[in-house]
Computed example of a mutant assay.
Amino acid sequence: MTNSSPGGSQHYAHIVVGAGIIGLSTAFKLVDLGADPSSVAVIDPAPVSGASFVAGGMLAPVAEVQYKQEPLYPLMVASKNLYDDLLQRLGEKTSLSTGHRTESTFVVGADRADARHLTELTEHQHGHGMEVQRLPLRQARKAEWGLSPQLSGVVEIPGDHQVNPRMYCAALLDALRNMGVAILGERVDSIEDGAVATDAATHTADMVYLCNGLGAGQVKGWYEGEKSPLKLRPVRGDMLRLRVPEGMEPPVGRVIRGFVEDRPVYIIPRTDGTIAVGATSREDARRGPAVDGVYTLLRDAIRIVPGIQECEFIEAITGERPGTPDDLPYLGKIGEKLVISTGYFRHGILLSALGATVGAALGMGQPVHTLEPEIDLASCAPLRHA
């Protein structure tokens, strides 16, 4: 149960720092594993306002593979395998939609060089046992009439799906509130031996979960020395949101990912009638949408799906993903009272199921039996770059 003191401080069995998709999923999984909901608190001054608010939301362990990031592959596959059960359990606790869609993903190439890139990527995916199949353009355009007839190649990935991150996080928040989990709108300054100091009070916990993305690098107290051992960097990405006009047939009915002159682009139709177009990846000083990024995304999306230009422009937004030196997350237990779960780079939505499952199990002192394939979590050790 939750205990209150006159100064506003409270004691919980579990305190989750961060109300993005990692923190919310971790709190949900704690209750799923048997934690008393009234003994769980999530602390964040602005829930779902960081990278999760801007993310694409693709559950795409196959399409997301990149050369020289092979250690990420089993993590992505294992997390995707956890999602169906997580979505089902979430649906039992909230009536809100997650925007989950299960149409297969098409990956396309714009010109001959892009077609070659697509072929090489497909060979790489096949080499790692992933399901990808080449489609004739004519067949692909029967399924997706909005595709340009000038495309040079198409492959289909049956198992790559999507959620709408804003809707998904709203559903998680609603479920947690329905179950009785406390959501505290405070800013965490430090964590030390289960004491969580915020701008409003100092709360105590049997176990603390540091899940607040880039902000985790600013939380003091839990480590020795002046600098945080978490080497997090902001990897910014521009995202566009469009609306399909009333009465117009959507130009796409599934996720379309593409290469245009070797530049990646994706087009994501949502269940709410909007379309997301993304995403750039840059490490520069521009905190807002980059002009070159917005221009390139629109140009490349229209080249792949010309009907995009008939849509209404809603917004251009920029997210800051928490990257690590090796692009693997920080996921593990530190001492007796702290679990670290951050640094998910470009894959926070996809890897949230893995992060929540592992993080909650570590905090509850329970073994993780549900990872397939089995994962050696030593590669994700939070102090490996200290």
Rank of each mutant, 00 (worst) to 15 (best):
S148D: 06
S148E: 03
P149V: 10
P149E: 15
P149C: 07
Q150Y: 00
L151P: 00
L151I: 01
L151G: 00
L151F: 00
L151R: 01
G153F: 09
G153N: 05
G153W: 04
V154P: 13
V155P: 08
V155F: 08
E156W: 04
E156I: 12
E156S: 15
E156R: 09
I157K: 00
I157H: 02
I157R: 01
P158R: 09
P158C: 11
P158Y: 11
D160V: 07
H161D: 02
Q162F: 07
Q162A: 11
V163R: 05
V163G: 02
V163Y: 07
V163I: 15
P165L: 04
R166D: 06
R166K: 10
M167R: 08
M167V: 10
M167S: 13
Y168L: 15
Y168C: 03
C169P: 10
C169W: 12
A170R: 07
A170S: 14
A170H: 09
A170M: 08
A171E: 15
L172E: 06
L172V: 15
L172P: 12
L172D: 14
L173W: 02
D174I: 05
D174V: 09
D174H: 10
A175Q: 08
L176P: 09
L176Q: 09
R177M: 11
R177S: 12
N178P: 02
N178L: 05
G180H: 07
G180D: 02
G180M: 08
G180A: 10
V181N: 03
V181C: 06
V181H: 05
A182V: 09
A182D: 14
A182G: 07
A182N: 09
A182Y: 06
A182C: 04
I183Y: 10
I183C: 02
L184D: 11
G185Q: 07
G185S: 09
G185I: 06
G185C: 01
E186K: 02
R187Q: 12
V188Q: 04
V188E: 00
V188A: 06
D189P: 01
